[in-house]
Design a protein around this nucleic acid. Structure first.
Lengths: 339, 339
DNA sequence: AGGACTGCCGAAAAGGTTTTCAGAAACGTA
DNA sequence: TACGTTTCTGAAAACCTTTTCGGCAGTCCT
């Protein structure tokens, strides 16, 4: 017991039990029309009796479709891949396709290796989930299966990439602050080497200038994606610009640092200064004091759409270019109208 | 371009190009001995020229081994599954087995569905990753493949389960605090409905009583796994027991709340009160003020071992029972010797 | 009654690989 | 030269399913 019990119940067994040929059994189970209702019932019953489940390998061999896709991620540990993965898995799960998970750990060699393995397994398609929202090298044009790039766009415009709208996100954040009646808005964000940092800042600046405003503190405070930087930058900001009435943080981590210092300085949030984060990283945003208004990247949705686009591509409808998906504001208590 | 380029290069093609039969080609590529070196070289060259990769489906069909395993997780979004998943994926990745990822989202129906699909795909084994460190229902004894339960043990002792040593973790935490010279140690933890909360508390109490100590505050402060509870409990604790010199928090989230209140009350950590967390959730622990000493669950290791045990089981060496894996102390700055 | 349909079923091929076994070729020995 | 060995190669079966196509009854029409 334990293992190796009822292995090897095959269509032949079902056919034998039902007293028909394998051909008829197959047709009966697959809903093919050329089989009498009574016969079909007999086969179905036999299949249930033996708890038959068709060998997908054999099916794949003949239909030339494995019913599998590869999910090639670069950093599983990073929190961005996970929701995308979940969305994709979910979208396929309802389908009859299964998902191969491969983590390349940011290593190009390992990625090649996994790619080979996946192709050898005859996956019907690939989703490549990047680690950062910046361009990554394409897997190449001459692959035998369609590929979708999620989060990190491919550097080849002939590929189809799905990314989050960071510019829109920055705009959305500032727009919300403006609607809350804030006018002296600062922006503290992370590593300027990240396209996401640049884009969010650009969106913020765009929206500000539409309103005839400029940044409190004079410029964007680039730094690192950490609480510590959030704290440090806030102290400097308060020094230089004590009348700031809103801070747009480039990530929830940074926002936590911002909140921390404001709390320390007995500056009330949100009545005195409103704070908005980015990422909607639940453990940080929801547990903050006060709970943090933030921008949600809709990553799960992104994963789901990636799966849909891939399905379409597998059915022949292939598109290309970069598709930008909208982000979404999540309001909590760290931002309120000024009075 | 795009898709469907070089599909369908098969062993037959390789054989033809090398001027041999498919049988010899197969043997040549698989390192079978009964083939002349010169012939083998010719075949290998042909295979490379055509960039041949064997159809794993066909291989699996005949060898009765798909070279795949199923990873059945209950909550992908939860942070515990991920490292386990990574560890398992990593351990298999170096092998030639690929991993099917299935997320049941805590739904038994969906789990059944995924299970069927995986068996239909003829996986060679299964790893079931639970959402909480408590017992979960077994998948059953009459499965055709071996199963390993990770994190959540199966309720059937005939299964093999791998769990983290929460008792040992509690003991380890308190031991560390004692070594730091603390004597008035309190324990604030989460939902008492979690076995993990009970176990960690038990380990802590055991170690305390060995030292002839009892808990500061009189008892374990059970509550919720949240920062807010960490804050609330700490306030109550300070009220009742102002001379506490160490707090063992049942999770890093709780520890963050603890630190927050201590900071607010101008009680220095670690000189006045030492704080230790649990989980080593990096974003919380490393960014805390001060960085948090905590207990690491070694989940990635757990995943790796699960993969090894599964490989062994697939090779016939099947074990059963609950295997408890050690946890590990990660010291940062929130705990130091008293003087 | 003979022919054309229709409806249902089964034999067989196909998909790509591994493995067994028989046969061919080369060689050594008597 | 005849025979036994050794070394290599290839034909064919097997894995399990799907799909095509031919066959066999039975039915309807003329």
């Amino acid at each position: 017991m334990g293992a190796a019990a009822n292995r090897a119940v095959t269509l032949r067994d079902v056919a034998r039990l039902a007293g028909v040929s394998v051909a008829t059994a197959s047709k009966a189970l697959n809903g093919q029309p050329q089989v009498r209702a009574e016969t079909r019932a007999r086969v179905v019953k036999a299949a249930e009796q033996l708890s038959f489940s068709p060998n997908t390998l054999a099916q794949g061999l003949i239909t030339q479709r494995s019913g599998t896709v590869g999910l090639l991620t670069s950093d599983l540990e990073g929190r961005f891949s996970i929701p995308i993965l979940m969305g994709a898995e979910d979208a396929f799960g309802s389908d009859q396709t299964s998902v191969f998970l491969c983590d390349a750990r940011g290593d190009a060699i390992r990625e090649k290796h996994h790619l080979r393995a996946l192709l050898s397994r005859r996956v019907d398609g690939l989703i490549v989930v990047g680690a950062r929202p910046d361009q990554r090298p394409s897997l190449g044009r001459d692959l035998p299966v369609p590929v979708i790039y999620a989060y990190s766009p491919s550097d080849d415009p002939a590929d189809l990439s799905l990314v989050t709208d960071n510019i829109g996100g920055g705009r959305l954040a500032v727009d919300h602050l403006i609607r809350c009646g804030r006018r002296r808005i600062a922006h503290i964000t992370g590593d300027p080497g990240y396209g996401a940092a640049q884009d969010r800042a650009r969106g913020a600046l765009d929206r500000l200038s539409e309103e005839g405003l400029s940044l409190a503190g004079g410029e964007v405070w680039f730094g690192m994606w950490s609480e510590a930087w959030g704290r440090g930058a806030t102290r400097m900001l308060l020094d230089r610009c004590p009348d700031v009435d809103a801070i747009f943080a480039g990530s929830d981590e940074i926002a936590r640092g911002v909140l921390d210092v404001l709390h320390e300085e007995r500056i009330d949030v949100p009545s005195k200064v409103a704070v908005i984060g980015f990422d909607n990283w639940n453990v940080l945003a929801a547990n903050a004091r006060p709970p943090l208004t933030t921008v949600d990247l809709n990553l799960e949705q992104l994963g789901r759409i990636a799966a849909q686009r891939l399905s379409a591509a597998m059915d022949g409808t292939l598109t290309s270019g970069v598709e930008t998906l909208p982000v979404r504001l999540v309001t909590r208590e760290s931002t309120t109208p000024l009075r």
